[in-house]
Simulated assay, not measured.
Amino acid sequence: MNRRTLLLGGCALASLAACGDSGKFITYDGPVVTQIQVFKTNRMMYLLHGDEVLKKYKIGLGGDPIGPKQFEGDGKTPEGLYYINRRNPNSAYYLSIGISYPNPQQVAYAQSQGKQAGGDIFIHGRDGKNKGLGRDWTAGCIAVKDKEIREIYAMVQDGTPIFIFP
């Protein structure tokens, strides 16, 4: 009886483990991503190794995507050269990797206008949120599908340059 209980308990635990999101973190052993290019007008993001496109993704942007981000709460996605500078495995949007916005000049400009430059700009997933709300729904971030952010999270290292074009 003890063996039977142990066996049933083990099967139950194995079943529960299979229900979890064991695929949230994947590994990548391909070419190094040397840069990310984002084209806001086309709503496309490219991961490159040198001049070779490794992956491309359709993206969602800030709720007001035209023009560069200047102030906290303006709903815009930044434009310019930044770097991937952090990761959040517990993101409210599944997984996320941080973009180094704002730079010192952007902070100084916002302050000169009596405002804050904002921050917390990420490439992130959706985690079931905001589906059906249109393509541009973030507060200034770059959104992709959850399965795509798994790839990006595995492929892109901290320090990778990201060029965000109008």
Rank of each mutant, 00 (worst) to 15 (best):
M45T: 01
F71P: 04
G75I: 05
I66T: 11
A92H: 06
D51W: 00
R86S: 15
E52W: 00
E72A: 07
K55G: 04
G67D: 13
V53R: 10
G50L: 00
P89C: 06
P65F: 08
K56I: 07
G98A: 00
P102R: 02
L47D: 08
L81I: 10
T77M: 02
G62I: 09
Y94K: 07
L61Y: 07
D64P: 01
S91P: 01
V53Y: 02
Y93L: 00
K55F: 13
I99Q: 04
K56Y: 12
G75R: 13
D64T: 15
G50D: 08
Y94E: 12
S91L: 00
L95H: 15
T77N: 05
L61R: 08
M44D: 07
P68Y: 07
Y94S: 03
I84D: 05
P65R: 14
M45P: 00
P102Q: 10
K76F: 10
E52F: 01
E72V: 06
G80L: 04
E79I: 09
G63V: 10
I99H: 02
S91C: 03
S100E: 10
S100A: 10
G73D: 05
D74R: 03
I84Y: 02
Y94M: 06
L54D: 15
Y93Q: 06
K69W: 00
G60D: 10
K69C: 04
M45D: 06
V53E: 15
I66C: 07
P102K: 12
L48I: 06
Y83F: 13
N90V: 07
G67T: 15
